[in-house]
């Protein structure tokens, strides 16, 4: 008796969201099967890998990152170089200096940096904010205005600032937004409902369902993403059918396992490989749970994760 295959191909599917323009534009989502289950039905848009760097430049304290960006001094050069990283589908600028509890860079300067990067890149651009809700609301409105026509993805609109960001970015200036909630299916859904009530369709919204590095409460991230995908596909819940993006790098490169110097833990070996492994492990895991895009920093991680995706398709 042969094995009876019962593919789980759903009537519902994940919405498609396109970022960037021209032939380098990437489309996230569109599948009607569980994450990476290309054996159940073809996945038209395989998950994408993005390369992250900060507005202060890439993290050159990591030798492999420093070597890759060697000679790229201006932010524009860094952005251009990032586009050439093997395996990269898009790049992501983090406006770290905008944080009011940090450097508090004025909005005009942030906008100028975004312009410089946007001019330099050949791949689609994803911009991450300062993580401060008030600042991001003002910042993204200006960035969206400055980058009209580039079709960038602005991360992240949260419950407290989604109105200003969504209306400005999507309605006034035709960009895409990332709706960020903190690891809870109902909060994610509520935010999507609020955004849709502004009159913004799902084709403009990507979800960031919350992040954690492997070992740091990652089970909440995995289960939230599992549940969101289940609701989107099996329950046809159209308020959860937006594609998901997970900025992995920030968490992966800040946990002790990745940053503790070798002197403190000699048996652990060099910090760089630990960081790379943490980044790869976390990225592979969020892809398995349903991310349509991940954002990474290290060239080795980008190579490994993009290869994983292409092997699975």
């Amino acid at each position: 008796m042969p094995f009876k295959r019962t593919p789980q191909q759903f009537a519902a599917s994940i919405k498609e969201v396109t970022i960037g323009t021209g032939d380098k534009a990437v489309t996230l989502g569109g599948e009607n099967v569980f994450p990476l289950y290309s054996f159940d039905a073809p996945i038209s848009n395989p998950p994408k890998v993005g390369v992250e760097f900060s507005d202060t430049g890439p993290d050159r304290s990591v030798p492999g990152i420093a070597a890759f960006y060697a000679g790229a001094d201006s932010l524009g050069d860094v952005a251009k170089r990032a586009c050439d990283m093997p395996g990269a589908d898009f790049v992501s600028l983090v406006l770290e200096s905008a944080d009011p509890n940090g450097d508090d860079m004025p909005i005009e300067e942030c906008v100028a940096l975004c312009r410089e990067v946007a001019e330099a890149v050949s791949l689609p651009l994803v911009i991450q904010g300062s993580k401060n809700v008030e600042k991001d609301a003002k910042l993204f409105e200006k960035v969206a205005e400055a980058l009209q026509g580039k079709n960038v993805l602005l991360m992240s609109a949260r419950e407290d600032n989604h109105k200003a960001i969504a209306v400005a970015a999507v309605m006034a200036y035709g960009q895409k937004i990332g709706a960020e909630s903190s690891v809870d299916i109902n909060l994610a859904k509520q935010l999507n409902v609020l955004v849709s009530q502004l009159g913004i369709g799902g084709e403009n919204v990507v979800m960031n369902l919350g992040t954690a590095a492997a070992g740091y409460g990652f089970e909440y991230v995995a289960s939230t993403m599992d549940r969101v995908r289940g609701a989107a596909l099996a329950q046809n819940d159209n308020m959860l059918q937006m594609p998901a993006i997970t900025p992995v790098a920030g968490d992966a490169w800040s946990v002790k396992e990745s940053v503790a110097p070798e002197e403190d833990f000699p048996e652990w070996g060099p910090a760089e490989q630990r960081g790379v492994s943490m980044e790869i492990s976390t990225a592979a895991s969020v892809l398995a749970a349903g991310a349509n895009a991940v954002i990474l920093r290290h060239p080795d991680s980008v190579a490994a994760v993009s290869k994983l995706v292409s092997e699975l398709m």
Binding site: E141, E145, K163, A164, V167, A168, M171, A172, L198
Partner: peptide, 15 residues
Amino acid sequence: DAEVRELGVPLVTGD
């Protein structure tokens, strides 16, 4: 149009 957008955003958001 720029002024329409600039004033439109806070009007739509209720600010």
